[in-house]
């Protein structure tokens, strides 16, 4: 139990990062993490130690996020997303803000299943197999959602046109 607890605590930063990408609002994200930890602790006996802990936790976190979205009025969710999407990261450089804000705003316009794929793969170091398992879809489906999502982002961000605003960010 003690070792399990330290393993779990070691995963918290990664859970928080994923939650932040899903919820944007830091408080909402931390509530998600808290709920995920509680669920994990009550189900620890279901975790098979030979499997990686992180995907198991991410699956619960994602499910909790989906549940909370479902319970929230869509109008309220939209407003929240708009408000939080524009909140810049405190540490990123000024130059990155513009790009990141635009990218996030466009990600939020994607169909949810494409948004899930682009965020899960883009934010976290997971294998494609793990990412697919977390979303409960076959790997081939993950890849096609990832591709459609990224291609659409590229289009919406007018990257294909070579627009300077996002073109040169280095």
């Amino acid at each position: 139990m003690l070792r399990n607890r330290s393993l779990l605590i070691a995963e918290i930063p990664h859970l928080r990062r994923y939650a932040r990408s899903l919820a944007r609002d830091p408080d909402v994200a931390d509530d998600l993490v808290q709920g995920c930890l509680e669920r994990a602790l009550s189900r620890f006996h279901l975790w098979q130690p030979e499997r990686r802990l992180r995907p198991w936790l991410f699956t619960m976190l994602h499910n909790l996020h989906v549940d909370s979205l479902r319970h929230r009025a869509s109008a309220a969710a939209g407003a929240l997303r708009e408000q939080t999407a524009s909140r810049p990261s405190q540490h990123a450089s000024q130059e990155h803000h513009l790009t990141a804000r635009r990218v996030l705003a466009q990600i939020d316009r994607l169909p949810p299943e494409q948004r899930d794929a682009v965020l899960l793969v883009g934010v976290n170091e997971l294998s494609y197999g793990e990412a697919a398992a977390i979303l409960g879809i076959p790997p081939g489906t993950l890849m096609s959602r990832l591709h459609r999502g990224r291609a659409k982002l590229r289009e919406h961000l007018e990257m294909t046109e070579g627009t300077p605003a996002i073109r040169r960010v280095k």
């Binding site: 607890r5 779990l8 605590i9 918290i12 930063p13 990664h14 928080r16 990062r17 932040r20 990408s21 931390d30 993490v33 808290q34 930890l37 509680e38 602790l41 990261s89 405190q90 540490h91 990123a92 450089s93 990155h96 790009t99 990141a100 990218v103 996030l104 682009v118 965020l119 883009g122 934010v123 990224r150 982002l153 590229r154 961000l157 990257m159 294909t160 996002i166 960010v169």
Partner: peptide, 29 residues
């Protein structure tokens, strides 16, 4: 372009990894 999208995501969310873990999350575990 895809890499740039990933970098933009990283610039926003990777900093979370370095934030202190909230006390109530540690306490929950």
């Amino acid at each position: 372009d895809y890499r740039r999208i990933n970098r933009a995501l990283g610039s926003v969310f990777d900093t979370v990894l370095d934030e202190p873990i909230p006390a109530d999350q540690i306490a929950a575990v």
